[in-house]
Amino acid sequence: LCSNILSLAMRGLDETPAELWELQDLQKLNLSMNCLCSLPPALGSLDNLVILNLLGNNLSSLPPEIGLLKKLRVLLANNQISSLPSSLAAMHHLTKLNLSHNRIVHIPTCVYSMKGLVFLHLACNRLETIADQIQDLVNLKILIVEGNSIHTLPKTLCFLDSLELLNVDFNELQNVPDEMYQLSRLRRLACHPLDKGLHIIHNPLLKPIHEVLQGGLSALYNYLKPT
C-alpha cells in the first residue's frame, strides 16, 4: 500500500478519525460509502491531496477549509449538498468535479471560476437553469446535467468548443439555442450513457426540432446553421 493513498471506504463511519488529519502527505483519500454528515475544518490541513472521494455519504455541506487544498484535481461528492463554499473558487487545478445526485438548484458561482475543469457532472440534482457564465469553463470536454429540470440552454454554452460529450437528457427542454451547431466536437447524437456526443432526445422537444433530430446530429446542425 502506497503511503500517500488511503481508503476508508465502506467502513460505516459516521465521523472521521482524528488521526486522519495528521497524514499531511496524503495525495489520494477515499471516504466513499460511509455515513458522514460533516467534515471538520481540519480537512484543509491535507494540502497535498490530489484526489478526494466523498461519494455516497450524507454530507449537506463542505467546510470552507476545503479551499485550502490547492493541489486537488479530482473531487467526487454525491451526497445531499445544496451549495458549495465560495473558497472552492480558488481550485484552479481541479479538472474533475462530480456533484451528481445532490440537491443543487443553481450551479454554485464558484464552479464557474474553476477554469481547469475538463469534466463536470451535475446529473440528478434540482437544476432549473445554467448561467451564462458556463462559457468561462473553456477547457470543459464533458458536461453531464441529465435528470434535472432545465428548461432552456444558454447560448453561451455553445461557445465551449472543446465539448465532446454534452448530456442534457431527462430535462424539460423544448428547444435548443440556434448557436448549437458551433459545438463541432460533439460529432453525433448519442444514445448509450457512456457515448461521446449530444444526449438530448429524452426531452419534451417541440416541432420541428424533435423531427429534425430523427436525422441525427448533422441534420440538426444543418437546420440550425444560418443560410
Rank of each mutant, 00 (worst) to 15 (best):
A219W: 01
L20C: 11
L120Q: 02
N98D: 13
L13V: 11
I81K: 03
S100F: 03
L29A: 02
T16V: 14
L43R: 09
I130Y: 00
G147P: 05
M180R: 05
E65A: 12
L163P: 13
R187W: 01
V168N: 00
C2F: 05
P85Y: 04
F170R: 15
L99P: 03
A131W: 07
S32I: 04
L166E: 00
Y112E: 08
L160E: 14
W21T: 08
M33F: 12
A89V: 09
C2E: 13
V111D: 04
L62S: 08
L76W: 00
D169A: 10
H202K: 15
P63M: 10
L186S: 04
P193M: 10
A42F: 02
G44K: 06
R73H: 10
K141I: 01
C124R: 06
N34T: 14
P108L: 03
S184G: 02
S45D: 06
L29V: 08
H210L: 15
A89D: 06
N53G: 08
L198K: 11
P63D: 02
L165A: 13
Q133H: 07
I200Q: 08
E19L: 15
Q174A: 05
Y112S: 03
M180Y: 10
N53C: 05
L220M: 08
V50G: 03
R185I: 00
L43Q: 06
K71W: 12
K141F: 04
H106L: 12
R187D: 04
L69N: 04
N78D: 01
V118F: 00
W21K: 07
N203Q: 08
N53L: 11
S100V: 09
K70Y: 09
R126G: 02
K71F: 10
Q135Y: 05
T95E: 07
K155T: 15
A90H: 13
L59E: 03
N30T: 06
P226R: 12
G216C: 08
T156M: 06
N34H: 11
D14Q: 13
K207G: 06
K141N: 15
F170V: 11
L213V: 15
Y181N: 10
S38G: 03
S86Q: 14
C37Q: 13
L97H: 01
L165W: 03
L173A: 11
S7Y: 04
P41D: 14
L165S: 14
L224M: 11
L157E: 03
